[in-house]
Design a protein around this nucleic acid. Structure first.
Length: 780
RNA sequence: GGGAUCUUAGCUCAGUUGGUUUAGAGCGCUGCCUUGACAGGGCAGAGGUCGUGGGUUCGAACCCCCCAGGUCCCACCA
């Protein structure tokens, strides 16, 4: 067989992947004779495309799952996608806008039809891309967070949490996106890094029944003045002692509001007086609660002022336009006493970029403190181990200060909240898994047995995406299936079905630190709450993929290479090793295409080593004691490296494990071993040495396979005649072999001598290229 | 403001409980070699008072304190 001197991944990778698929090597089933090894993929956004972060993340998962598979474990890597409610809805809205269709002109049903259509069209792309990377996922288990069973599970869990008292509907200060008309979680609000320039207005309020006494406050949001219900000063501020208890008048409308004392107020800031607008500022809201202040909500959902503001000319005007008008009017009326530039941080919606308004709103919340206790302990005690462990501190800090989780989103794409309203009162609702149950409950609650579905209105909102993805490790194994939970006492406990009891808890979760709280912590909570068990043993937190200048890779910067282009150019093997060459857990990865080039070069090096060995002829008489010694040395060296790799894998030091095998192959095998045993051109090699060399090559391919699955499989299949189903991907991981440290050390000394000879020859202009054994003979 | 973490060769990072590390790797750099697997190759070499200043110790890159700088997370000031 004549082999090309250049290894071309394009002629190998797709073919090999199809062969693996043909024999169903990726699929795993409960098998009591084998130990399970499970990974669930962090489900990418269903409409997303592969980016460099995915490449890194999924390469690591594939390395781990392939190694486990070779170790004889029942290796199950569950793939899937996330419906990603906000992100996907935003994309569908944008797509419709291009067609000149506005979302609000559509019914919910029509909009969802468009969304599903969109999903059908683009939903599979990212999974196909993963196949290009070589991901050996159990595709038969592919899940989607809005699959019918998954949808049911999410609703079931919501209902259960409500029944247990962990979910409540409450008036809370939330971040409001006036453009998308939706609540945002804190995590979805972004702040400009350096802060932003704003104007701080000094506005004076007249003290009631005084001749010319005024109180001056500072504000950057004069439009909220009309919602003021108090002025607060610090209790220790002597300047204002005499004002406390008096009333001042709100400009324009002359509402009488009290001057109160609260520790929150900073004496040093501005004038030391703070206007209190409970409806439009979180801190003011808290102060309002403490002092029983009325709440006057002056801003509509779309950001315009409403009639509660009390001034007709501002009603219906957008808040920023109204601000301008109010400033002009304050100036005219003599209330504005000064302005100054001021650096502040302005929150913007991650999706729409519009400025976020704090707003009081009825939303659904999960009481996090009550259900997160076990999850905190699990990480503290190491029952769930974070890698690197420095994230333990971060995790603890967050869990100890966890806030209630606002789970409702004013969107259509997602799991619709299973609450039904039957009246105008805040308590006129029921929570149930389905309409039939809802009617029953509503009849009971109202005492009206003739109530029908028509009398009920389902909550229009959907659940936060994470309220579905936190069930991922359970529901991919159908944990909330009808047959697997019991409803005695109205509570749900996941019973172990066959898959679940075998594959759960999973072994490791590989994900980004940025979603440690959104997702990882919540999965741990859900795991203990519903299965009574942790969802995974280890959490491997990857770094962020950055460019050479340490900038985060992003679409807007245009500094992110297209992963598929990279694969086309360097092969999946090359890209995988490129990603891994520099990515210790938790450290950011400074990506450089040169690393992929290094990976591709490595593939080529291996290919040529194979080409050399494959071209040899053999002769039983050509074996020599020198060659025997050489094979003994290499065997030792190889086993030493294998031990190192095992150790590194145990600590999730994947890139170091790769470096071990990289050096073993490049330096020890190619540069020393092959050079030492290489027969003179055209001459045969000793039969024994030859067989040993093939054994070595095979073991090296095994050790490298998790990292570079394609080229190793190709060589494995081609190095000798094999059975139809004898593939490297399922071949056993090499057992621990002995190694002779003395032999390795001695060889090191010998090699140093040889290097020295080479140097001398080099200096004398003699060829250093000739086979090492001739070199040694001629100089000794 | 609260917390975490980092600072080792030109770059990116290892250095495990302080003593075989006279401080290592990969890439880069410099020089030399090149018809016999591979120029996408081979060999060799140069490069670091381990951020600053103290301290503990027989001994510190490693432990303690101070300072300087970087990164990240959380909260957020009208």
């Amino acid at each position: 067989m004549e082999l090309e001197a250049k290894y071309d991944p394009r002629q190998v990778e797709d073919r090999i992947y199809r062969e693996w698929m043909k024999f169903d090597f990726f699929h795993a089933e409960p098998n009591e004779k084998k130990e399970p090894y499970t990974i669930v993929i962090p489900p990418p956004n269903v409409t997303g495309v592969l980016h460099m972060g995915h490449m890194l993340n999924n390469t690591i998962q594939d390395v781990l799952i392939r190694k486990a598979r070779m170790e004889g474990k029942e290796a199950c890597w569950v793939p899937g996608t996330d419906h990603a409610s906000i992100a996907t809805e935003a994309r569908v809205v944008a797509m419709l806008r291009e067609k000149n269709i506005k979302k609000h002109t559509l019914t919910r049903e029509t909009f969802l039809e468009y969304a599903w259509e969109w999903r059908e069209k683009f939903g599979g792309i990212i999974l196909e891309q993963l196949k290009k990377l070589g991901a050996s996922c159990d595709w038969k288990r592919t899940s989607f967070t809005m699959d019918p069973d998954y949808y049911k599970a999410v609703i079931r869990v919501f209902t259960d949490l409500y029944n247990k008292g962990y979910i409540y509907r409450g008036l809370r200060m939330i971040n409001w996106d006036c453009e998308a008309k939706t609540a945002l979680s804190n995590e979805e609000v972004i702040y400009n890094e350096d802060g932003e320039k704003a104007t701080l207005y000094s506005v004076r309020y007249k003290v009631k029944e005084s001749k010319d006494d005024w109180v001056t406050v500072a504000t950057v949001r004069p439009e909220t003045i009309l919602g003021d219900t108090a002025i607060a000063v610090n209790p220790h501020d002597r300047r204002y002692k005499k004002l406390v208890g008096k009333y001042v008048l709100v400009p324009f409308i002359n509402r009488e509001i009290p001057v109160i004392q609260d520790d929150y107020v900073d004496k040093e800031f501005g004038t030391g007086c703070l206007k209190i607008t409970p409806a439009h500022d979180p801190n003011d809201y808290e102060i309002g609660l403490r002092h029983n202040l009325p709440v006057i909500d002056t801003i509509n959902d779309d950001g315009t002022l409403n009639d509660k503001c009390g001034v007709v000319k501002y009603t219906g005007i957008d808040r920023f336009e109204a601000r301008k008008m109010i400033i002009r009017d304050l100036e005219k009326s003599g209330h504005l006493v000064g302005t100054q530039d001021f650096m502040t941080r302005i929150g913007r919606s991650e999706r729409t970029q519009s400025i976020v308004e704090p707003k009081l709103s009825l939303q659904w919340f999960v009481r996090m403190k009550e259900i997160s206790g076990k999850a905190l302990k699990a990480v503290e005690s190491g029952e769930v181990a974070l890698h690197p462990s420095k994230f333990k501190n971060v995790y603890r800090h967050w869990m100890e200060n966890v806030r209630d989780w606002c789970v409702s989103r004013q969107l259509w794409w997602g799991h619709r909240i299973p609450a039904w309203y039957f009246g105008e009162d805040v308590d006129d609702f029921v929570v149930a898994e389905n309409e039939a149950d809802a009617i029953k409950l509503a009849r009971k609650k109202t005492g009206n047995a003739s109530l029908t579905l028509k009398d009920l209105r389902q909550d229009p909102d959907v659940l936060d995406t994470w309220a579905s993805s936190w069930l991922w490790p359970l529901e991919v194994f159908k944990g909330f299936d009808d047959s697997c939970y019991n409803r005695k006492s109205g509570k749900i406990i996941v019973k172990n079905n066959q898959d679940l009891s075998y594959f759960y808890p999973t072994n490791v979760l590989v994900t980004a630190p940025e979603i440690l709280f959104f997702w990882v912590a919540r999965m741990i909570i859900a795991g203990y709450e519903y299965a009574g068990k942790k969802p995974f043993q280890d959490v491997y937190l990857t770094g962020i993929v950055r460019d050479k200048l340490r900038r985060k890779m992003s679409k807007s910067l245009g500094n992110s290479p297209d992963p598929l282009d990279l694969i086309e150019q360097y092969g999946a093997d090359g890209v995988r090793t490129g990603m891994l060459f520099s990515s210790p857990a938790g450290n950011d990865l400074l990506f450089d295409v040169k690393l992929c080039e290094q990976g591709r070069n490595f593939a080529n090096k291996i290919w040529n080593a194979f080409r050399l060995v494959q071209g040899w002829t053999t002769d039983a008489g050509a074996d020599s004691p020198e060659n025997d010694l050489t094979t003994q040395w290499f065997e030792s060296r190889m086993n030493e490296a294998l031990g190192n790799m095992e150790e590194q894998f145990g600590k999730y030091r994947i890139s170091e494990a790769l470096l071990s095998i990289y050096r073993l192959i490049w330096d020890d095998f190619c540069s020393w071993y092959l050079e030492l045993i290489k027969p003179p051109y055209g001459q045969p090699i000793g039969l024994n040495t030859y067989h040993k060399t093939l054994e070595f090559l095979e073991q090296l391919m095994k050790m490298l396979h998790p990292f570079m699955p394609f080229i190793t499989e190709e060589i494995y299949r081609n190095m000798k005649q094999r059975d139809e189903r004898d593939y490297l991907i399922i071949s056993p991981w090499p057992g621990k072999g002995n190694f002779n440290r003395k032999l390795i050390e001695d060889a090191g000394e010998v090699f140093a001598v040889i290097s020295n000879i080479r140097n001398i020859r080099n200096a004398n202009g003699l060829s250093a290229r000739q086979p090492l054994r001739l070199l040694i003979k001629s100089d000794h």
